[in-house]
Design a protein around this nucleic acid. Structure first.
Length: 631
RNA sequence: GCGUCUGUAGCUCAGUGGAUAGAGCAUCAGUCUUCGGAACUGAGGGCCGGGGGUUCGAAUCCCUCCAGGCGCACCA
């Protein structure tokens, strides 16, 4: 069985449920015509024109083929000298018609193309038999009219109406702050949600908090905080130091009293500076209420456990909000235990004969659902594993009315995909609407050296403090959205800070601000400008380039949503900004004292400026990046 | 070892089987400044990791090898 979690482009066509591309998404890919905006109308019409020409050629006896087999694909040539659109239809007809020379086929099709089309200006045969189609330029002018009509709606679609998607992302353990490493999934998840909404879907953003009582990590974390708390109260702490000699170091207490005895910090304790911050917070709140040894007793630990969790989650939430992300739900794993959902799921799995006892544990028959082997649901110490909790969790998601679930995980969780799906399937759910998106790893580098260790050793590079506070939200988001999530990334925060002014986000924002500036000037000053708009005056190559790019926008958004590829939008953003700068250099909008521009042309260009501004604003909106009027 | 992802310009990376493989940064050379110079123009730089195969056509699909990341628990 082939297991693939790669995106749509890699779909292998086998149709089994390990393929992470559900059927409805595939439909979207094939059915590009549903993209709203001018472009879809154009491609529909061009396709029809070619289809008719081929049908007529058949009627005239030129070709003998079954028209039902015909699929006409249009593409936008990379080189604009190859026309506004091109088709490879003649090349694909080689076999079907039995005609060896595809140029000959292409010429025949051209012969049967209508000569009276208001859309199609001319067609040429090029290369090995490409059909290059050149359109009358007014289709581009219609693009501006459409943008002015739709405004913020330009680039939206109804293609995903009826979909109710839950996207769970980041879900960092509550034992540390949101790290720069989480930034990629955070930006990806947030923008994907924006994209789905733009396509008509309903979307929920969810953060899952791993706070289960039977997990040891929270105990250790709370214990670490308790020790730091006692240190604040005056106790010395013996802290392990990883180094060549591996000696422990005694850190003196920081409080007024120098109390005994010296406390021992566990080797696998959490040593980050943020742990002290939490401890100091707690000292401020409760003072010495849990002085030694109360802090380490049952009641004290229960307090520290709850207080640390609350503070850590609040810190995470604040960091994500600083990044521009607001989650609809913060889902506590513990709630699944409290509500009995985990027990219920385990009982159900037993009843359905999806689980069996062995070696004192309860096992899930996950191998029957494509997993490599069976997995433990309930350990021999009677505690449930996360497999049980996750199955119950995803069952819960489905009961909340979502018809599509997306989990964004790091690639290091790759091995868990099969067992989660097995768990959900064993509960009787159709897993074709459960999709796991795996982002490739983000590794951290500081001044060229790899940062290793992570939370336990305290080497966390924080998303908020170390990146957002330094370079700003816009640059930070754009940075993470520049590349595909499938590419492993290296983040050097020091380098990112040094180069922050080179961030392409400023290039895009600058283009937007410039357009605003022109519009503002027109509004402020008495400029000579026609009241009538004649868009056909826009014929300069730079103007045509801008309009072509604007026409692409709705399809670009849909593709970005379908392929889960926000980086297409950042790339598009840089391209449109570049094209606009060329326009700006070459085409003066406001007529100056020298009368370089006629009032009519001036008015038409203003329409172009206004439309481009709308598209950039819509685009930056999807990316969660601000579109400033001034910089 | 098994699984999976990645390998494209000096660096970071785009590239939905199509035409001469692109962008940003960096480097070098220009523009000279009437609507915002955070700009524009140009140049250099590539056996698309190697080798087979499928196809009219392959960076893209298949096989294989090489290199790197990640995973392979009664941890989450």
């Amino acid at each position: 069985m082939v297991q693939r979690y790669a995106p749509i482009a890699r779909w292998n066509g086998s149709g089994d449920w390990f393929v992470s591309v559900p059927a409805w998404r595939l439909d979207k890919i094939i059915d590009r015509q549903r993209v709203e905006g001018v472009l879809s109308v154009i491609t529909d019409e061009l396709t029809a024109i070619i289809q008719t020409a081929i049908a007529n050629a058949c009627g005239a006896g030129e070709f003998a083929l079954n028209l039902a087999d015909l699929t006409i694909k249009l593409e936008k040539p990379a080189n604009k000298q190859h026309g506004d659109f091109s088709s490879n239809i003649a090349l694909t007809l080689k076999k079907l018609t039995g005609i060896a020379d595809s140029r000959e086929i292409a010429h025949t099709i051209v012969k049967f193309l209508p000569t009276n089309s208001t859309l199609l200006n001319r067609a040429e045969v090029a290369g090995p038999g490409f059909l290059n189609l050149y359109l009358n330029p007014d289709w581009l002018h219609n693009t501006l009219t459409t943008i002015q009509e739709l405004k913020a709606g330009y680039g939206t679609s109804t293609g995903r109406e009826g979909q109710n998607i839950l996207v769970e992302f980041v879900s960092a353990n509550p034992t540390g702050p949101i790290s720069v490493v989480n930034g990629r999934a955070a930006a990806l998840g947030d923008v994907l949600c924006n994209l789905f909404v733009s396509q008509g879907a309903k979307v929920g953003r969810e953060f899952y908090i791993n706070d289960a009582l039977n997990s040891l990590q929270l105990e250790k974390f709370a214990f670490s905080v308790a020790l730091r708390y006692l240190q604040e109260l005056g106790h010395s702490v013996l802290v392990p130091v990883s180094g060549p000699d591996d000696n422990d170091v005694t850190e003196p207490g920081t409080g007024e009293t120098s109390a005994e005895p010296t406390l021992e910090f566990p080797k696998d304790g959490y040593r980050g500076e943020y742990v002290r911050d939490i401890a100091r917070d707690i000292v401020i709140e409760i003072g010495a209420k849990y002085a030694y040894p109360l802090a380490l007793g049952a009641e004290g630990m229960a307090y520290f456990r709850a207080a640390t969790l609350e503070k850590m989650v609040a810190t995470q939430r604040r960091a994500l909000e600083a990044f521009g992300i607001k989650f609809d739900t913060w889902f506590y794993e513990s709630s699944l235990y409290e509500s009995g959902a985990v027990d219920r799921a385990i009982r159900l799995l037993r009843e359905r004969n999806m689980a069996y006892e062995k070696d004192g544990a309860l096992w899930l028959r996950s191998s029957e659902f494509g997993d490599e082997k069976d997995r433990v649901l309930v350990r021999s110490n009677e505690k449930a594993t996360y497999v049980a909790a996750d199955a119950a969790y995803h069952d819960n998601k489905l009961t909340r009315g979502y018809n599509h679930l997306i989990d964004i995980w790091g690639a290091d969780h790759h091995g868990y995909v099969a067992r989660l799906k097995a768990g959900v399937a064993a509960l009787g759910h159709d897993t074709s609407h459960l999709e796991i998106v795996l982002t490739q790893m983000v590794s951290l580098v500081r001044d060229g050296e790899a940062v290793i260790g992570g939370k336990r050793k305290g080497a966390v590079i924080e998303l908020e403090q170390d990146l957002i506070d330094e370079v700003g939200r816009d640059a930070a988001r754009f940075y993470f959205l520049l590349n595909s999530y499938e590419t492993p990334a290296t983040v050097d925060v020091e380098l990112a800070k040094k180069q922050s002014m080179d961030n392409p986000v400023y290039y895009v924002q600058y283009a937007h601000a410039r357009l605003c500036s022109i519009m503002q000037k027109v509004a402020d000053e008495l400029t000579v400008m026609s009241s009538e708009i004649d868009l056909s005056l826009l014929t300069h190559p730079a103007e045509l380039d801008v309009m072509r790019k604007l026409a692409d926008y709705p399809a670009e958004v849909t593709v970005a949503a379908d392929l889960y590829a926000p980086h297409r939008l950042t790339r598009y953003a840089m391209e449109i900004a570049g094209i606009l700068n060329v326009f700006y250099e070459n085409c003066r909008v406001i007529s100056g004292k020298d009368d370089l521009v006629s009032p009519e042309l001036s008015r038409a260009r203003l329409e172009l400026v206004s439309s481009a501004r709308i598209v950039i604003a819509n685009l930056l909106g999807l990316l969660g990046v601000s579109a400033p009027q001034k910089m």
